[in-house]
Simulated scan of single mutants.
Amino acid sequence: MTSPTPGAQSPLTSAVLVLEDGTRYAGRAYGALGTTLGEVVFATGMSGYQETLTDPSYAGQIVLQTAPHIGNTGMNREDDESSKIWVAGYIVRDPARRASNWRAEESLDDALVRDGIVGISGVDTRAITRRIRDRGAMRGGIFSGSDAGLDADEQLRRVTAAPEMAGQNLSAEVSVAQARVIPATTDRIGNLAVLDLGVKQSTLDNLARLGFDVHVLPQSSSFADIRAVDPVGVFYSNGPGDPSASATQVAVLREVLDARLPYFGICFGNQLFGRALGLGTYKLAFGHRGINQPVLDRATGRVEITAHNHGFAVEAPLEGTFPSPNGYGLVEVSHIGLNDQVVEGLRAHDIPAFSVQYHPEAAAGPHDAHYLFDRFRDVVLANLAQAQEGGK
Rank of each mutant, 00 (worst) to 15 (best):
F235I: 07
L384M: 11
A111H: 12
E51D: 13
A382L: 06
N292D: 14
V229G: 04
D205I: 14
D350Q: 11
T54R: 03
A224D: 14
I85T: 01
V234G: 00
R126A: 09
G365E: 14
D213P: 13
E81W: 15
G265L: 14
V92Q: 01
S220C: 01
L53Y: 12
R103I: 10
T66D: 03
R135P: 01
N191Q: 07
D151K: 12
G290V: 11
G89N: 08
G265N: 11
R97C: 06
G327L: 04
D187P: 08
R133I: 06
S175E: 01
A228Q: 12
G31H: 09
K392P: 04
G269P: 10
M138F: 05
E39L: 04
P56E: 09
L257D: 09
G34M: 07
T5S: 10
R114K: 07
R28F: 10
G122A: 05
A67Q: 00
G145N: 08
G345A: 12
R135H: 05
G119E: 01
A166R: 11
M138I: 06
I142Y: 01
R298I: 04
A148W: 09
L204S: 11
F264H: 06
A362E: 14
H215A: 04
Y358C: 08
D368S: 15
E389F: 15
T125Q: 01
V356P: 11
L156Y: 00
S202A: 15
G365H: 15
P95I: 04
M46C: 12
V314G: 02
R133V: 02
I226R: 01
F373W: 03
M75F: 10
V256Y: 05
A67R: 02
D153F: 10
V87K: 07
A162N: 14
V87H: 05
D115G: 04
L12T: 13
S83D: 10
I351Q: 12
L338K: 04
G7H: 08
D378C: 06
C267T: 03
A247P: 01
R130P: 00
F373I: 05
V123A: 08
D151E: 15
G311C: 02
K283P: 14
V16C: 00
G22W: 00
L19K: 11
Q293M: 15
Q388G: 05
V380W: 09
T44G: 09
G22F: 00
I85S: 01
R302I: 14
T186L: 06
S246A: 00
L64G: 02
E51G: 06
T23G: 07
G311T: 05
R98Q: 03
P294F: 09
H359Q: 10
D368W: 10
I62R: 13
